[in-house]
């Protein structure tokens, strides 16, 4: 059993985007804050800190979860993927490219989490229909786009992938 006193700092190792990061944190530090301010991975955004807006969504063991509703100490032993982790070394991922092609973003603040959630969706359901895409993204708020071009982006990325699959 490990016990950390209030305001005491503890050393933890997080597996983020395939790399181990050892950082010192207070147990109360939210995963979102550690990812952003200790690891410098600022593509994860914080919008409401109560799990509603979805901007801080990251993949935990491949599944979308809110990094604002998890303490960093709890993320030990899990694989965390942020937007930086799905971005290829050069160019864009198929989903990222689809978002650009279909104007699936305006201010870009909700975008990394939209893309991560969509990644997870397409891994689970490679050929979703529009209703499935809308349902999967219903926990990711966007104030700019009215969602239509986001949905188009995800559907097109799925279509492109299955076309490639068929070849």
């Amino acid at each position: 059993m490990e016990t950390t006193k209030a305001r005491e700092v503890v050393q933890i190792t997080l597996q983020v985007n395939g790399e181990a990061h050892t950082v010192e944190v207070e147990p109360r530090m939210l995963l979102a804050d550690v990812i952003r301010h200790k690891l410098g991975l600022t593509g994860t955004h914080v919008g409401c800190e109560q799990g509603v807006c979805g901007a801080c969504t990251v993949l935990v063991d491949g599944e979308p979860q809110r990094s604002c509703l998890m303490f960093a100490v709890q993320a030990q032993g899990h694989d965390i993927t942020t937007i930086e982790g799905v971005t290829p070394e050069s160019g864009l991922s198929p989903l990222q490219a689809a978002f650009q092609k279909h104007h699936g973003l305006q201010c870009g603040f909700c975008t990394p989490a939209m893309i991560l959630t969509s990644e997870a969706l397409l891994r689970k359901h490679p050929n979703p229909d529009e209703a499935q895409v809308r349902e999967a993204l219903s926990g990711n708020l966007c104030r700019c786009t009215g969602y239509q071009f986001i949905v188009d982006s995800v559907l097109d990325a799925a279509a492109q992938a299955s076309k490639k699959e068929g070849q």
């Binding site: 952003r36 593509g43 937007i83």
Partner: peptide
């Protein structure tokens, strides 16, 4: 024309205010 600002935004490289340190 597809947007020139998108490449940085879709890859999480946009620098918003809380990213200024």
């Amino acid at each position: 024309v597809t947007r020139l600002e998108d490449a940085r935004l879709v890859s999480g490289q946009g620098r918003y205010l809380d990213d200024v340190e």
